[in-house]
Design a protein around this nucleic acid. Structure first.
Lengths: 324, 324
DNA sequence: GATGTTCATGCAACCGTTTGCAGTCTCCCC
DNA sequence: GGGGAGACTGCAAACGGTTGCATGAACATC
């Protein structure tokens, strides 16, 4: 039915192996012959069968991309950039959503393993041991997680966190609440650490509240604790948490930023619309860098590298001097 | 390197064909034999090679999903639902982002064609003729577009539009601006049509302004026209346009909803956060329905169907009675 | 003119599964 | 006890490419 390499060979009067080489090893075939082959292929509408190619080369030309939740606005820009970047080297990308469930994550990785040349794990929830074990089957690059011997791309929230606390301090805030996220999250660890250090440096009191679910619900649920803490400003684990909190507080009659200043993390477009001060994550750049690392890892089996990208504060309307 | 069907055959003392049947046609093999095979496969960690399977069955077990812009918050819930639903029948999903470019769309479809059993085209921008032509190679299901002889899932904005105009009329608005989207968009056509009809029914004056880019920029750019039109309420092509407009107007000192009421379309989570009245699109349901249609189309080559889903208005804080 | 090199191409095995066909074995029935 | 039906299983040919090796031609070297 579909046109195969054999049809092209017949049409251009050469052996199939010559056709194959005309496509995948051009320098091995006479340029005139090659031109004839290409012409025949074009006129027949030949497209190589990737499954067949995969079978003999053991390379599928596919990459996996595993995220916790596509609907979380943090991920799409990363997915988009990664996919576009992968295409430039003729790779296709499977996107899988684990729905924040660890079991699903493992199963997805396993079922993808037979079908991809490598995979990107973005902020995986799986344990280090299991990831290391799985990495025997498929080359991984992890994003926003550190695992020994695995190449990683890190968006370091520390730099942005320092800027955020400096910003709050300069506005006159002294009591800051930190809404922490999942304990296993590398970003959360960096956030806690950087916030603690920066708070000390600026002489601020830091109230850690958490861990919270990294969702609107998590933010809304933290509202009572925030109010009880006496903090005048909040740094939240991510934009969703921040916005969930803002909405809950508004429902209780507390205005932002007049009653309370709020800073998020991620700089999702939602934050842009809601005028939320937030720490910008270079997600698109991270997506591209991760693909580069992965392709490099796949083609040359050498030492893993780590790319660290800095973050920075974006000041918008959700922060202001404390009331009174 | 990887464990193959041959290893399993050897370990369980049967022929490879029996192993194959044990997995893909269980009823053809003795249940005890099958148990032995499965046990051997488990202990060896056997996973069928999908490329090899694809080669002989001409079924890859992969589906394509082509969208204009992953970062547009309209798409992720659909992608997520489609992917999760596809997995239940052991299908993997390639997601491709055309970046709103027609050329990229065609090329992506072509390059996917060899590798998927079928594809979902969500709000494609390509011309009908080309899509029909391409559909000879790959089964398609289109979402939010009508093309003769192609199965489709439609989220009909008409019902929501009627509700929106009724809502605005009941608030006392008489002059409504409609910010239209891309001409080729089926949703836009339905929107214009339904708005025209409903406006007439309620005795409202409808000012059509557009076409606008379906982005924040498009909404912001329409602000001058909206102000000039004298409308007291706006129905925008989608939430992004609506929010772009709101932001631009606020920058010019015009409050929403006090100075102007705004209604969007899509009910993205951004709309939720920004307290935007909007028409809810059942994107997750559409994603599932589209996958069902596609799988059905793939397995039984019969008549294409169309699924139409209704939409409904979600009233939030961006609409109020007109000033004065 | 024998030998060696290089370039271009053909040959055929292989990648891991599936599947039509052809046994073989057991069981049942007349 | 001969014949037929059914249930299993093995055999081997695909599926569509890739690639190591062999072959042959053209050309240079001594």
């Amino acid at each position: 039915m579909a046109v195969t390499i054999r049809d092209v060979a017949h049409a251009s009067g050469v052996h199939v192996s010559t056709v194959s080489r005309a496509f995948s090893a051009a320098h091995l075939v006479n340029s005139q012959t090659r031109a004839r082959v290409i012409a025949a292929a074009d006129s027949l509408g030949y497209r190589p069968n990737r499954a067949a190619r995969a079978l003999s080369t053991r390379r599928t030309g596919n990459l996996g991309l595993i995220v916790a939740d596509i609907a979380n606005p943090f991920f799409p820009p990363l997915i988009k950039a990664a996919q576009a970047h992968a295409r430039r080297s003729d790779h296709h990308v499977f996107v899988a959503d684990t729905d924040e469930q660890v079991r699903a994550e493992e199963e997805l990785i396993r079922s993808m393993a037979t079908q991809v040349d490598g995979a990107l794990l973005v902020a995986p929830r799986l344990g280090n041991r299991l990831i290391t074990e799985l990495s025997a089957d498929v080359p991984f690059v992890v994003v926003n997680r550190r695992i020994t011997n695995l190449p990683a791309v890190l968006m370091d929230v520390a730099s942005g966190t320092r800027q955020a606390l400096e910003h709050l301090a300069s506005l006159g805030h002294r009591e800051i609440a930190l809404l922490t996220g999942p304990r296993a999250s590398w970003t959360n660890q960096r956030l806690e650490r950087a916030a603690t250090d920066a708070a000390e440096y600026h002489g601020l009191r830091l109230h850690r509240l958490g861990p919270n679910q990294p969702t609107e619900g998590g933010g809304a649920g933290a509202a009572p604790d925030v109010l009880a803490s006496g903090a005048t400003a909040v740094l939240a684990y991510n934009d969703l948490v921040a916005l969930g909190l803002v909405q809950e507080l508004r429902g209780r009659g507390l205005a932002v930023p007049d009653g309370l200043s709020v800073v998020g993390v991620d700089n999702t477009h939602t934050a842009r619309h809601c005028d939320l001060t937030t720490i910008d994550m270079p997600t698109a750049a991270a997506g591209r860098a991760a693909i580069d690392l992965l392709l490099h890892r796949i083609t040359s089996e050498d030492a893993p590298g780590t790319v660290t990208l800095d973050t920075s504060l974006v000041v918008r309307g959700s922060t202001a001097p404390p009331a009174g």
